[in-house]
């Protein structure tokens, strides 16, 4: 049944893994100068952050797309990362810039991630009755995204201009200035979330068949969908906290992964999406920083190609 040799999903995953390893190696070694230990440590921290973001975005996108029954919408297109920015703006507004800055970073992040998981689930669970109805979901996502962005803009205007800088830094995707204080909790949360999703990979295969088929096969649909949406919210928080919103990265890596790995099974698909995201982020960052001397930022390049992929997927969806 399954293809063998160099076209089998396993071989393709191995190739992707080699590509990811190469990207990591290049990221750590190309253009090293000055104090070796210092430079390596600096790079290792940034590498860990990039890999964390790659994994969190890839996993949350695959899960979200399977539960909502499409391969076009992603948590960020649906405005989930805008919600995170709004939560941060609200926190700064209510606590004041100083009060917000004085909170312990880990507790703050975990609180925000928990709130995200809760709000995200509350928002998207009702939308699941429209599973597979892409126009409606897309419309809801656009409206929600605009709503959250305008609300956080409004909150930002109410905030003292000095404190606004704190919010501002959290609003744009930035792979150069990572928030290193959050690295450990983000890594932990992403690791845990990814492990739980990995264990549910067979259930995800069944859920991809649709609600009725999945229930018929003994999957407790509502409970599974709720639990998975909680994970999507937490993972989105874990990636947004480190680099800010990246709207089209998830869309791009899952679309590429599906075509590269050549299977819709969630085990290989999740692995493929994670590896491709690592190649894109770590490899892309290496090329832009070392070869092109940072004339472009990675965020812009990924949004450009991701946006193109989004348009192509939308216009080619004719069934």
């Amino acid at each position: 049944m399954a293809e063998r040799g160099w076209t089998s999903p396993k071989a393709r995953l191995l190739l992707l893994a080699a590509g990811a390893a190469l990207s990591v190696l290049a990221f750590m070694t190309v253009g090293l100068k000055g104090g070796l230990a210092f430079a390596l440590e600096l790079r290792a921290v940034r590498l860990a952050a990039l890999v964390e973001v790659a994994v969190a975005v890839a996993v949350s996108t695959v899960v979200f797309q399977t539960i909502t029954g499409n391969r076009i919408l992603t948590p960020s297109i649906m405005g989930l990362d805008a919600l995170y920015s709004l939560l941060q703006a609200l926190a700064v507004f209510t606590l004041g810039g100083l009060g917000y800055a004085m909170l312990p970073a880990t507790a703050k992040f975990l609180g925000e991630a928990g709130l995200m998981a809760l709000l995200g689930t509350a928002l998207f669970l009702p939308l699941l009755s429209r599973r597979g109805d892409i126009p409606t979901l897309l419309l809801a996502g656009v409206v929600l995204g605009v709503l959250f962005r305008s609300l956080s803009l409004m909150v930002a205007r109410l905030i003292d201009p000095n404190e606004f800088a704190i919010v501002q830094s959290a609003r744009y995707a930035d792979f150069n200035t990572l928030d290193a204080t959050l690295l450990v909790p983000c890594l932990g949360l992403t690791g845990l979330g990814t492990l739980l999703v990995w264990r549910a990979r067979h259930v995800l295969d069944v859920m991809a068949l649709g609600r009725e088929a999945a229930v018929g096969l003994g999957v407790a649909w509502r409970r599974s969908a709720t639990a998975l949406l909680v994970l999507v919210g937490a993972l989105t928080a874990a990636s947004t906290a480190l680099v800010g919103p990246v709207a089209f990265l998830g869309l791009l890596v899952v679309a590429l992964a599906e075509r590269t790995v050549g299977t819709v099974r969630h085990g290989p698909l999740l692995l493929g999406a994670m590896l491709l995201a690592v190649i894109l982020l770590v490899g892309g960052q290496t090329i832009l920083a070392q070869l092109l001397d940072n004339v472009l930022t990675l965020g812009i390049v990924i949004e450009f190609f991701g946006g193109l992929a989004f348009l192509i997927l939308i216009t080619r969806r004719r069934r």
Binding site: G210, E212, A213, V215, G216, G218, V219, W221
Partner: peptide, 16 residues
Amino acid sequence: TRALALRLAVMAQEGS
């Protein structure tokens, strides 16, 4: 629902 899935199988009308 899992216990029922071992006793009853259903083919609903075609969805997606």
